[in-house]
Design a protein around this nucleic acid. Sequence first.
DNA 1: TTTTAAAATGAAATCGATTTCATTTAAATT
DNA 2: AATTTAAATGAAATCGATTTCATTTTAAAA
Lengths: 340, 340
Amino acid sequence: MAKEITIYDIADKVGLSPTTVSRALSDSPSVRPKTKEKVNQAAKSLGYRSNIFAASLRKKSTHNIGVIVPRLNSSFQSSVLAGMENIASQAQYNLIISQSLESSKKEQTNALTMYNSHVDGLLVSMAENTGNTDHFKPFTEKGIPLIFFDRTPDEPSSPSIIIDNTQAAYAATSHLLDQGCRNIHHIVGNSGISTYKNRIKGFKYALMDRQLPYTEEQNIYSVLNEESGEEIANIILQIDPLPDGLVISNDACAASCIQYLKKKGIRIPQDIAIVGFNNDAISRLIEPNLSTINYPGYEMGEIAMRNLLLRLSENDDSPGTNETITLKSELIVRESSLKK
Amino acid sequence: MAKEITIYDIADKVGLSPTTVSRALSDSPSVRPKTKEKVNQAAKSLGYRSNIFAASLRKKSTHNIGVIVPRLNSSFQSSVLAGMENIASQAQYNLIISQSLESSKKEQTNALTMYNSHVDGLLVSMAENTGNTDHFKPFTEKGIPLIFFDRTPDEPSSPSIIIDNTQAAYAATSHLLDQGCRNIHHIVGNSGISTYKNRIKGFKYALMDRQLPYTEEQNIYSVLNEESGEEIANIILQIDPLPDGLVISNDACAASCIQYLKKKGIRIPQDIAIVGFNNDAISRLIEPNLSTINYPGYEMGEIAMRNLLLRLSENDDSPGTNETITLKSELIVRESSLKK
DNA sequence: TTTTAAAATGAAATCGATTTCATTTAAATT
DNA sequence: AATTTAAATGAAATCGATTTCATTTTAAAA
């Protein structure tokens, strides 16, 4: 293992003090351009790389941003991450990513690790079964910017980036009602997370606004992924009378559900009209094409990261507003919900 | 911003030296159990967290692993990352992830950033247009473990984790031949990457082994994603005579291609039989279900990370074997290729 | 009880960049 | 040319944990 070059080595080579070398390398205005050039050249020729530990030890900033997501291998989450990475790398920040795997316990461990790694800021999309947010307190207490996105706590004590889930579910449901559906069910995640709570609200309001009956039984709680589609389809098939419309909170899940329903001889949308959520690639590829809520993952990632960087650059200790940024989402109507 | 607690604060509180505190916290055998307990308790009550910079500055290890992928938001890549994260977090390592966006230039920048961030090891899946691997030299020169996965350089100077792309393409092509196809084309990534080169080999060998003609024109080079499917379909439609079989190196691309071909009145598999690559969720959901190569992303991630950690724990400076680990892949036959 | 060996603890140097404060050098002013 | 002012550089302290080497304490052996 070759020895690392330090600023002292550079200082020796160019006959200056380490102080000046340090300043030259960080492009300080109090160093002559000529000197800077000399130093930079020597640095390059020696193969110098800055020791970030020594630097961080003094500066107390890592240029690392932590991100905790439920799952890395989810089409929505990975889009968000892609957006975040894009902005972060432009600003010379690194991304430290970990996944909670929907486990509240692992989320706590992740948070602790992030804290101990001294990330400059933290972005979190919560695990489904996470009840409280105590494990994030160390961040807020130390003044480390913390922003939630998509899966946000019920009572946001920190800024959040979300879509208007109430409105989105309202739009999806209203659309089905417009298509003549009168027995709609709502497949939704089971948890205390605001995301799903609000979708349930939107579903309910859409019915109530038309003086149509709403009962809690219309919500079917389930894990939402490709695997659960069949299981959900079986539950649907046992409902009597058979529903004529479904709002399913996840496209991958909706797609596999549709596939199974079709196998069982159900016609989509004639027998059951369906709207999904996310506008995943799959929604454009299954038959019939899936109506869905377009949910801007990549943009959400970009916005969350920009917002975090903004807070980092505000070098004061201001408490910071706990605003909630709500992104637009839109209903995309395709064949799966068009009865007429 | 509250002041950080250091081992000196703990030392003061319990009336011991920082030395002993340091040793107690790292569970050194030369500290009495009683003393350890006292120190740990004080640490907890003071809200101590170790300053990793100070520690890293001395120990010269960060417990950070860098990963460079072409795209975060790809179903395959995010599975790989999920597998990596899983193993890394168990071993108390952090993942620093960045994406090259298929740009060789950005890959170089990423590599430099990783190098300057002093990652303990690096895992890389190369961008399509990356010709050489000079930008990874600093790692090998400094003895920092570097492992390539999936998209590996042509002449692996570092260990690689791949699947046998030659064999996989051979299997896909042979299957189509078994189905009676005699005019097969191969949709493949355009680049000098070994992945695609080997698939082309496999395609060719399958034909040659049956004494069937092979020409370079049978390979169609393209970007492989959902968006390019339509474009590719158009190219296919203009081939005269129309191919009766396609091997498409990516499921998402194959799916959108199938959709477009169907729109144009082509029957799958009767007119054209198709085999994809990756076993993405989409392959199980489109109609007809897509035959594909099952390509173990999650496992690949786990194996790559385990291998890297192994190299890190071998605390000697041994050159390390440049072995290539080849994972099994398998052809999954579904409707899209079954002519009989 | 004394001697010897082992276990436990501490003092101080170290890792390498940054920063405060002091000093030297150069440029501007009279 | 002498003085003032600004620009450029340097010495040394600092960040906090680790580690080497020395010292003290405790336990085991004589």
